[in-house]
Amino acid sequence: MSCLNELQKLIQDKYDVDPTKLDVNGSLREAGLDSLTMVEFLFAVEDHYGITLPEIPPTMDRLAELAVVVDGVLAERGNGAAAA
């Protein structure tokens, strides 16, 4: 289950960006999230899930791409717990 919907909700809660108007494959920069805001958003994502994200390349500009990375981190954490 991808976290994409949750990320959309997070963006809406934090920045009042309407999910229906946010193209998950479109540029976040063009949606108004400049580089500083993106950095803050990543911090909020980490807080929300209790995870640490890997270094996100500054060129990453699409919510769908970010969701893939976050899904990956969540899956690893899930696997780690299962193995323990």
């Binding site: 934090k14 920045y15 009042d16 960006v17 108004g32 999230l33 500083l36 805001t37 803050e40």
Partner: peptide, 8 residues
């Protein structure tokens, strides 16, 4: 300020 403008 919009919420987006309040960041940082």
């Amino acid at each position: 300020f919009s919420k987006l403008q309040l960041a940082g």
